[in-house]
Design a binder for these strands. Structure first.
Lengths: 148, 148
DNA sequence: CTCCTTGCAAACCGTTTGCAATCGA
DNA sequence: TCGATTGCAAACGGTTTGCAAGGAG
């Protein structure tokens, strides 16, 4: 899942855009990029604290928003359950989420499904140029279906 | 968009499930069912106040949750923008949302797209039994694309 | 040396909850 | 009557903000 965006030069990106490369920002990025799951701001903060115990919630929030502006992170809407926003590294390739109602697991899937949706929307029927496609599905995963 | 679920017998449904038919609940349902868009709880409340000025926020929230339990309403996750939960009448047929970044319009679309997704997920590749499919797409609608 | 960033703490705001009064069945 | 439901008001919890001290360039 990870393995492409986690080792690029964050410092350079920040400076290119007129921002400063700071400890808290690096720590927030590490937290996000080293996780395979979608983290709440609180989870990011607790991971950040492993590197920098003094880092503040506020800086975490500010960093997350900054990263979103830079296009390297994004908020995800994982169904309606989550009452705290979750964040993930913005992968260049689209993917979607399968959320199992039984075991709570969240699977990420890349694949052409999202691309098919994009093509479908671009057709005559809709004429809609899709930018962000957010496909969250809740249901029962194979394993839980087999178990019941 | 509406025109099928807004004139059913809410009172009967409530009583069938052991709940009481009350003014606030009818007002909340009217507010939801008479709107073509997705409303925040606050928007529902203000609409409710047209019928019953004394109705309280708390009752609106409680009614919305109740309706969701009964399967006649549901929370929608409209992209990541919305920082207040939005509600809509739960249509029996799946549909998806196209949110235009330029003009802000939210189009609802029923159609087989969502069904295609469901079938795809049920296949061998995923083995996932989809319950709720939440497909929100942000981008540029036909009209705005033509205008630019 | 500048002024962007941070940590701190307080404010915000959507949502939830405890409780006594009220109302539907 | 009796308990579900309501309005009220206070609590909650995630997120945002003002501000002075600190740190990157």
């Amino acid at each position: 899942m990870r393995g492409m965006a986690d080792d690029f030069d964050l410092n350079a990106l920040l400076r290119t855009h007129g921002h400063r490369a700071t400890g808290p920002r690096r720590a927030v990025w590490d937290a996000l990029a080293s996780s395979d799951s979608h983290l709440t701001a609180e989870e990011v903060t607790s991971r950040v604290h492993n590197l920098d115990a003094g880092a503040d919630r506020a800086s975490v929030y500010r960093s997350l928003v900054l990263f979103a502006d830079l296009g390297i992170a994004r908020e995800t809407s994982l169904g309606a359950d989550a009452h705290a926003t979750r964040w993930e590294v913005a992968h260049p390739d689209d993917h979607f989420h399968l959320i199992c109602r039984k075991c709570g697991a969240v699977e990420h899937h890349a694949g052409d499904l999202v691309d098919q949706v994009r093509v479908h929307l671009a057709g005559d029927e809709h004429g809609f140029t899709a930018e962000t496609i957010d496909l969250s599905v809740t249901g029962t995963c194979r394993r839980c279906a087999a178990a019941s």
